[in-house]
Each structure stands twice: as C-alpha cells, then as structure tokens.
Design a protein around this nucleic acid. Sequence first.
RNA 1: GGGCCCUUAGCUCAAUCGGUCAGAGCAGCCGUCUCAUACACGGUGGGUUGCAGGUUCGAGUCCUGCAGGGCCUACCA
Length: 715
Amino acid sequence: MSERVLVTSALPYANGPIHFGHIVGAYLPADVYVRFRRMLGDDVHYVCGTDEHGVAITLKAEQAGQSYESYVDHWHAVIRDSLARLGIEFDCFTGTAHHRNPYHRELAQQFFLDLQANGYLAERTEEQFYSERSQRFLPDRYVEGTCYHCGHEKARGDECPSCGRFLDARRLKDPRSTIDGSVPVLKATTHWYLDLARARDEWLRAWFESKGADWKPNVRNFVLGDLDELRERAITRDLPWGVPVPAPGSDGKVLYVWFDAPIGYLSISRQYWEARGEPARFEEFWKSADTKLFHFIGKDNITFHAVVFPAMLRGTGAGWILPENVPANEFFNLEGRKFNTSSGWFVPAESVADDPTDALRYALCTMMPETADSEWTWEEYRSRVNDDLADNLGNFATRTLRFVERFFDAAIPALGELTPADRELFDTAEAARDELVGHLHAFRFRQACRALTALGNACNRYYDQAEPWLKVKDDAQRPRAAQVMRVCAEMIGSIAVLSAPVMPATSATLLRALGHVGAPPRFDAIGAAAAQTGRLLPVGAVVGAPLTAAFPKFTDDQGREKSALFLKIAEERVKKELERLRTRADHPVATAPATSAAPAAAIEPLAPGIEFDAFAAVDMRAGTIVAADRHPRADRLLVLSVDLGFETRTICAGVAAAYTPDELIGRRVIAVANLAARKLRGIESCGMLLATDDAEGKPRFLAPDPATPNGARVS
RNA sequence: GGGCCCUUAGCUCAAUCGGUCAGAGCAGCCGUCUCAUACACGGUGGGUUGCAGGUUCGAGUCCUGCAGGGCCUACCA
C-alpha cells in the first residue's frame, strides 16, 4: 500500500547565503524523510526553490547596481550549491522569478482571482507616500518624519521610536524617504487584503483542531495561540518587481511576497512535470485527496504554513490539498550563540570542505532541534563522527572485512545453519529496523540515529563474544569463525540499509564493499529470513567483493597505509575551528564570506550624501563618564553623568545590554553635545554618546585618544 | 515594565494523561581482548530533577514566590 507523498522545504529567500541553521531546520530533515519514504516504495515528490520577490531584494539589487534578475540569480546559485554540498536532492529546485519559472506568475495570479471570486479579498483605496524621485510608492517603514504625537523628528512611518505609538504614516510632518532622501507626496493607491478571520471562523479552526491534534506539540501550541489574533493582511504592494496584480488599473502593483512565495511550491512543481512531459502528475500530486503533503520549515514559519497558506489553498476552491503535517523545527545555534553570517558567527564552507557529506548529515541529524532549540558545537561534532561513525559503525565494518581478507581470501563465507546467537543478532537488526522506521515516520531523526548506533553496538558485542580471531586458528572451530564473518557481513548490509536515508553515500560504499549488485535493497532485506533467501547477499560464498578497497584511505601514526569507513577528527581540529570562529567574530567585516557580485548582507547601506555644513552643525565633544546608574523604568538604558570639561551633564544611553554601570565609571566617550534635550521614560537626556555595534549586535562606545582633554571638539 | 518559554548526572539530552522515571550517550574510573583507525566488550561511581513553599495517597511532571537563562514587546537622541 504505497502512498503518494508530497514534500516541500521552505523556499530560501534569494537575498543572502544559508547556513547550518537553515539546513538542519528545513532541508536535511526533509531530504532524509524523502529518501526514507522512497525506500518504503512510496510515490514521493520533493519540491523546493528560491523565493525571489519582495522589497528587500528590490532594494539590495538596486544598491548593488544590478538587475533584479541577475541579483537573484547570484543568490539562487549560492544557495543551490550550499544545499548540494549537504547532499540535499530535490526533484526540482527553481524559483519564483519569471525568468526562472514561467508558470509562477500565472498560477499566483490565478490564486488571487480565485480568492477574489470567493469573496476572501477586500479592496481598499488609501493615500500612501510616493517618491517622485524614485518613481515608487514607499512602504511605511521607509518613510521618516516628525511624530505627530510627541514631535520626535525621526519617527518611522509605521511607528515612533520615541513615544512608541503606532503611526499613520500619512500624518507625519516633514516626511522624507529613507531610500532616496526626497520629500514624498501623498498619492492614492489601491490594495487588496486577505480575510483570514473569515476562513478561520468558517472552517480553518475546526480543520486545525482535528488535523493538528497529533502534530508536534511545539507546533500545535504555537498555532492555537495564533489563531485568536488573526487579522486581515495586505496581499499587494506597489513595487516594480514581483507578480503583477491581475486586476484592472493595477499597473505598478505586485502580489506581496509572502503571498506569492508559497505558491512557488506549486508552480515549481508544475514546471517540473511540464518539463518531464507528464503534466497530469502535477494535479495528481496537488489535488488528490489521498496525497500526504508535508511542509518542512523552521519555527519562524509555523503560522504561515499551518494557517495562512491553508487558508489560501482552500479559499481558492480549486481543490488544492491541505498539509497532512507541518513538522517544524526549532532554532539551531552555534557554540551557544545564534548563527549570524554577517558578524562571522557561522561555519564557513572551507571549515568542512574536506569532511564527508555523510558525516555532516549524520552529525546534524543527531543535533536536530526537534522539540527545543539546540546547537552545533565542534566538540559534539567530533564526538559524533569519532564515537558513532568511526569507532562504532565504521570500525565494525573494517574489522569484519579486514578479517575476511586476511583469513578467508577476501571471500565472504557462505551462510550456514544459524546458532541461537546468530539468530538473536538478526532479530536485533529487525528490531532496530522497526524502531528506525517508526522514528522516521514520526520525524524523530535524533532517535532514528540512535537506533542505528545501537545496532552497531550489538554487532560489536556479537563479534567480541564469538571470538573469531581465536577460532580461525583452530581447524575444528574454523567453520564457526566463517559463519560469524558471514553474519557480520549480513549486518554490514543491514547497517547499509538503515543508513541510507541519513547517509546515502556511506550506504552505497558499504554495499559496494559487500559486492552487492543491483537495485539498493529495502528495509525488507533485513533479518534472518531475508538472509537465508539471499535477499541481500547470495546464499553461497561471495567472492571478489572489493571489501575494504572501497573505503577511504589514510596513513596511520606509523606511516602505514590503511582504509576506514570514516576518518577521525583530531582534537586539534576542534581547537583550531573554535579559534577561527572567535577570530572571525572579532573581525567580522574583513573576513565576511565573499559574495563577489553582491554586497555583504549585513553592512548597513550608506546613508544619502550630505554637505560639509550638515556635518559641521554637529558638535561632538570628548568627555568622561563620572557616574552611571540603571534607568529605573527602562531595561536597556543607563543614566550616565558625563564630564565634558565645561560642564557635567546627564545623558541616557541604550547600552545596558553591553555594559554594567560600574565598569563605565571613568570611561572616555564622545558625545554629541548640541543635540536637543529629550526625556527618555522620565529622565531628560542632554546629548548622545557615539557607539557602534559589536559582532553580537551590542553597542560599544567610541573613545577619544587618551591625550585628548574633556571638552575637545571633534573635527 | 508587559507577555511567553526554559532550568534534570561534569557535558549533550530522555522521561505519553501526576504513580518503579530518576534514565541514555559522551567524558571519568576498574577490568578483558587484539580481528580492527588503542578500536571493541564487561563492570562501575555520579543527580534531594535551579531554590523555597503548597496541592495530592503519590510531583521533574500541577499551583505560588524567588534566583538564573532565552524569546517577543516598550525604553536605545
């Protein structure tokens, strides 16, 4: 009873590189699951691609002076290569941009029209800021002006950073575009909104409460909380890049990126089946009620895939299926901190360039953030590779095959009568198989790995207890040694089968070592009955197998050439990687990953140019902090007394995350001394201290040269 | 300040509805073996489950307070 299974991994945004956090959250588990279901004989279709629209991409491409197409092409290629490096194999990996996927535009527009026809869209015309200079409408957060509540001069269009109130951008005084610095004008524009509350009340809540009942608890709880706070969401924007809105008079409008992105799952799939000349398969997967659809995502995407996208799919009335499960993962950290590519806190490709893909895949699976946040540590990586792969599984294969080479002319002996011990080991293998299958069905990848290594333990125990190295030297007992080797060879086959989803290359290497030919064996090749009917290896002797010749070579301490399934990671390697990581984090800009065609992701865009007069108007002075206290009503603020030579004044600074009050006493700082005073949660701040953010995003003060007296002006 | 979550052996993590759940792996210690990358196998110490109370016949598992950590949010001129 094979099933039709449809799997998607979150579409990575074509605006920067991806790192282990993304891989372990949405791509590796999906890839493992897909390989697993294929081994079960299911009809599996696995879809992914890059998400290539949206404001962020538009702005970045413009800053880089590139066309939108070539900008997303660059990141599409970078991301595709990163995924390929980890052995992630999709049926199709294209994207949502029109030049890459001609089906996307039409399908996204059809979604819009269907939802509109079914009454899920509301249309409203409102005035919004427009930049004549850039010929574009400005999203609220790219407009800045004076707050109409508190008079703050640099309020953002969506909310005021000073008084904290949400703003109506149109009422800002002295508005400016933060993109091009021009003065925007108000212009009427029409937008469409998706009525999520209606979908929720009509059917979505009921659907989720039944369907989501056995989803991972972290996913279910999150969604249940979110269902109560659904608001309608705008699904269109004024932007030059994206899917054009299919409505009269909507020139210059596109579908909001969040709306068109998930439709990419469908359009990419359609593109694939069209190209293969089997267009009917597209709807077979996406519209058959018995297809099981799984969205693999990170936890930041839960609401979207469990609520919004289902609402869109069913809202069309077009018969699209809804997800069977959304096995979202939590977040993945690196050595105790969040991954942050731009500040150097990541695992660079060159650090793992020489490591086998399977070692990385296995280690990442054992660390997967299935129910809670988890982390990559180099020490843990070393332990997983050395303890589990090299010493347990790898060494079991090596000791068996080397033994066969030395004492049986490299011919795996024929299978004879099974002793109770033999039979018990076969049963253990079958039990391991059942466990692994159960775990993978339930998305428990860590436990699936555990089932595999547990079988390795059992195999090593069997080997030790059978003592073939003694029996092989005694003619009377030599047949028993032969049988033990045969059983161990069968176990290597079992390990190969169970490894296949997580470690496909290793699985193939092991099978080649055994001389296995033909299609890769499936789960039913495990167990005594399968062995006795020759499911995995011919019942008679197996001659001429490559044995350890198929394994990677290395040179041991004595300079002898040897082979092993997995090479070990030295302790020095861990130290070196930790050092490199810290060095990178201390000098993030200099060593940020080379992105040739595009600017480094996290460097803030340069502000619009100014004349000298504008700079000269800012009066900055050297000073010394003479007193420091926490702000009574703001966690992030410190209240500082700064000696500026001519006077000592009170300045509030948002540096509580980086400094304690005590350590700041006596610290030299540079202050903007002629800035208008402002009350910050009750305390007047007279000026501003200069700071830049460190690698962790914490503010760090700039200091004048020690020779500079307090009060000296910056020029 | 408001909201949400977390804190289990040195380390990384398990324990469905409160009832042999106080566990596993690694590290440590002792021992055995030599086929194998000194690999493996056997044995073993180790936790008043952050702290203090409470509910219950019975609580890592529920409630309250405290300490520490994280996320969202306000305060970063």
